[in-house]
Computed example of a mutant assay.
Amino acid sequence: MAAGRGGDIVSEFLSQNPHLENWVESLKGYCETNKQWHARREFILRNMEIFPTIHPGTPSQSLDRLLSLSMVWANHVFLGCRYPQPVMDKVMEMAEGITVHDAPERKTRDEIMGKAKRPASSAMDGDLQVKKTKPNDSDSKAHVKSTGHPVKTGPSPGAPAQHQPFFNRLYKAVAWKLVAAGGFGPNLEHYDILRSCVESCKATLSSVFVPLKDIPDLPTARTQKEGQVCELRCHTVYMGTGYGRDESTARAMASKEALKVFQGQKVTVKMCRRRFQGRDVDDLVLLDEKPRGQVFPPALCYPFQEDQ
C-alpha cells in the first residue's frame, strides 16, 4: 500500500468524492494484488488533473493514456520492467510523493557489474573531482584586485524555468496533504505540512531567522518591537516570511504564508525585485496566478551573492 499516510489520503479523498470510488475500483486489474492496486490507484487519482478531458465512466483516449502510464509505473516498481528513458522520466515525475513500502529491489546486469568495478575507480574519480572543484585562491584574489570588489552573482535568466518542474510536483504534494487535513485553515500545523511535502519531493525547506529590531527596511514603529522574523526558501526560491514572538511562532507564520500560495490553480517561479541590506536585488519568488502588486518583505538572506 502507498507509504505513510498515502492510503489515508486516498481514503479521505474518496470519502469527499464518493462518485469516484466505484469508478476507480472498476479499473483494478484482474491479476493485481491489493498492494499493487492501492499504489496504482493513488497514481491514477493524483494525476487525473493532468488530463482534464477524463470523465469518470466515459471511455476516452486521455483515460487510456493515464491507465497506460499507471501500468508502466506499476510494472517498473513491482516487476522491475524498463521502458524508454523519456517514458521512465515521465512516470517517475508523475509518481512524485508516492512511496511504496517493501517494494521489490531489482538490479540490472549493468548495475551489478558496474557496482563490482566501482571501488577502485571511485576513489580515483573522487580525487579528480576534488581537484577540479577546489577553488583557486590566486584567481579569486586577482579578480578582486582588478575589479575592486568580490564577485557578485544573481539568479541566472533561466533559473525560473529550471525550478518550475520541482514546484509543480510540490504543488501536487501540498494539494493532497491539504485534502487529507480537511483543507487550508488557521488551525493546521502549517510548518509540519509544508516540511513533509518538501521532503516527499526529495528536497529540504530552509529557515532563516533575524531579530525583528535588526531589519533596517521595516517601518520605524515596527523595528522597536521584540520578536523574530523567519524567511523560508527551497532550492533558493523564496516562499514566505513570518513574524512572531519567537522562532517557532515566526516559522509557523512564514509557513502559513507560503501555503497560501498553493491555494490557486498553479504556482509559478518568477524573477522579482526585493530589498536586501538597503538595496534592490533580483530574487527567485514562488507566486500563484492572482494579480497583485509586486511588494515583498525585505529579504533576510540572498543566496546569489558571495559577500553577504
Rank of each mutant, 00 (worst) to 15 (best):
S140V: 14
R65K: 12
C272W: 10
L63W: 13
P155Y: 08
Q162T: 06
V229I: 09
P18Q: 09
Y83R: 04
A39P: 05
G278E: 02
V100R: 10
I44V: 13
A39G: 02
T58M: 13
V91R: 02
D307C: 06
H38I: 02
R40D: 02
N47K: 12
K256S: 05
P186M: 03
A2Y: 13
Q305D: 08
A250F: 07
S15V: 08
V269Q: 06
Q224G: 12
F13P: 05
I44S: 02
K115T: 08
L188M: 07
N168T: 13
D64Q: 09
F209T: 07
H19I: 00
R233P: 05
A116Y: 15
A180E: 06
K266N: 04
E257D: 10
T147N: 14
Q164I: 14
S200K: 09
Y243H: 11
N168M: 11
P150K: 00
N34L: 13
N47P: 13
R41E: 11
V72Q: 07
A203G: 04
K90G: 01
N22V: 10
A258K: 08
R279C: 08
L170V: 00
F13V: 00
G148P: 09
M92R: 04
S15D: 06
G29A: 07
Q85W: 13
A203V: 15
A252T: 06
F209C: 01
S121H: 07
V24T: 07
F13A: 01
A116L: 12
A142S: 10
N168L: 14
C201V: 08
C272N: 12
D307T: 00
A159F: 13
G242I: 04
T147W: 15
E226H: 05
A173H: 06
E25D: 11
K202W: 03
T249N: 12
L212A: 02
L194I: 01
H235V: 01
P211Q: 01
A116R: 15
P18I: 03
T220C: 11
T268W: 13
Q263W: 04
D246W: 14
C272F: 15
L286W: 05
S68V: 14
R251D: 11
V267S: 03
P119H: 02
R118A: 12
A181R: 15
P56Y: 05
P52M: 09
W37I: 01
P59V: 06
K131A: 14
T268A: 14
K172V: 02
Y171D: 02
H235T: 00
A120T: 13
D288R: 13
V210E: 02
H76P: 04
N136G: 05
W37Q: 00
F296H: 05
H55D: 12
D282C: 15
H190V: 04
S11N: 14
G57R: 07
L284T: 03
W176S: 06
C230A: 05
C81W: 07
P135I: 10
K107T: 00
T236W: 09
L178E: 00
S121G: 10
N22G: 04
L128T: 03
H143A: 09
T204W: 15
Y171S: 04
V174W: 11
D192N: 07
E49H: 15
F51K: 13
S156R: 14
N136E: 07
C234D: 01
